[in-house]
Computed example of a mutant assay.
Amino acid sequence: MVHLDLSKTEVGPFSWQYTEKETILYNLGVGCRWNEQRYVFEGHSDFAPLPTLAVIPPYHDVLASVPLQDVLPKYNPAMLLHGEQYLEVKVPLKATGRLLTTARVLEVQDKGKAAVVVLHTTSRCADSGEVVAENEITSFMRGAGGFGKQPPVQRRSAAVARNEPPSRQPDAVIEEKTSEDQAALYRLCGDANPLHIDPEFAEMAGFDKPILHGLCTFGVATKHILKAFAHGEPSALKSVKARFAKHVFPGETLRTEMWQEGASKVIFQTRIVERDMLALTFAAVELRPEATQATSRM
């Protein structure tokens, strides 16, 4: 067995400054409408970003700088698939600010012909040094396996939970039709992969047309859960985890099916209505009980 040294993979910190413009752009990118003034008008008294904005800082130079080629000799970025995302929000994001983000390889697993890599990112407030959010980004890398079994890594339980939906009917369901322009808009938040805008590139990747970002669907679903179980209050989100099971085409309808488990956990899955396929699975949100009593502003 070859032991892969992950200790030297940390990069950063990288600075990301966001203003009212970036906050509004992200909120629009995950489907907020003009009449949801809290999220689209900087003059609103409670103007704020949706909490899943915290997935954006790693896409500003951070992830591209992690030396995966030093860990996986067969690494090819063209063979990477985003498999899962775990986000933990430590403190509510301010409407504007500057975040400093570091990243490192947390875990690698040999799957034979492929590898699974988990990257961990930490974003801190540039002014106070306080940790604002942490992400765990799990990717499936085709053709990168064959290096041997690695020692297990202890990960937080919410990041690896299977979150099987209960057998009963959902406690809440929200449907939202995405815009045909949604991927073109969302990519301006930081993920400029041509898979989401260039028809020729999408065809080479095996798709009929450009697809929606998985993290856009992730943001839409989280917005649905906050609306159904936390009065739409963004500060209620503690964490969210999901597996990307199927691609979504811009213009398709997302149906988030939700089951409340106890006072603070909501298991969910997000279905593509037109094709009756699940886009997000093994998914759950943890809520802050003290924040769910806030008055609805949606």
Rank of each mutant, 00 (worst) to 15 (best):
A126W: 05
A78Y: 07
K111T: 11
V91R: 09
V116P: 00
L81E: 01
P77H: 02
Q85L: 10
V105P: 01
T101G: 08
R124A: 13
Y75L: 08
C125I: 06
A103E: 01
A115D: 09
L93G: 06
V118K: 01
L119P: 00
R98N: 15
R124T: 14
A103S: 08
A115M: 10
E88N: 06
L106S: 13
R124F: 04
R98D: 12
L106Y: 02
R124H: 10
V91T: 15
E84R: 11
G97I: 01
E88H: 10
E84S: 12
T102Q: 02
K113R: 15
G129N: 05
V116R: 07
K113L: 15
R124N: 11
H82A: 12
S123F: 02
Y86K: 10
G83Q: 06
Y75P: 02
K111H: 01
D110K: 13
L100T: 11
T101R: 10
T121Y: 00
R104H: 07
K94D: 13
A126K: 05
E88Y: 01
A114V: 12
R98W: 03
M79R: 15
L99Y: 04
A95I: 05
E107S: 11
H82F: 05
T121N: 09
A115K: 00
L87G: 13
D110Y: 07
D110W: 01
A114W: 04
Q109W: 03
V105Q: 01
V91K: 14
G97S: 12
C125W: 00
K94S: 13
A103R: 09
G112H: 10
A95H: 07
A103N: 12
G83K: 04
G83T: 09
A114K: 12
L81P: 04
S123K: 06
V108R: 00
Y75K: 07
V118Y: 00
L106M: 12
V105Y: 00
L106A: 14
A115N: 10
G112Q: 08
T102A: 03
G112Y: 10
D110A: 13
E107M: 05
T122Q: 05
A126C: 07
E84A: 08
L100Y: 03
T96H: 00
P77W: 03
G97E: 04
S128K: 11
V108W: 00
D127F: 05
G83N: 07
V117P: 00
K113I: 12
P92L: 09
L99D: 11
V91I: 08
T121S: 13
G97W: 00
C125M: 08
G83S: 08
G112R: 05
Q109E: 12
L87D: 03
T96D: 06
A126S: 15
P92W: 03
R124Q: 14
Q85S: 07
V89I: 14
E84Q: 13
T121E: 07
L100D: 14
L81F: 09
V118G: 03
T96C: 11
V117A: 05
K94F: 06
H120T: 03
L119F: 01
G129E: 09
K111N: 14
P92R: 04
P92I: 08
S128P: 05
T102S: 06
V117Y: 02
R124L: 12
T102G: 04
S128V: 09
Y86W: 13
V89E: 06
T121G: 02
E88R: 15
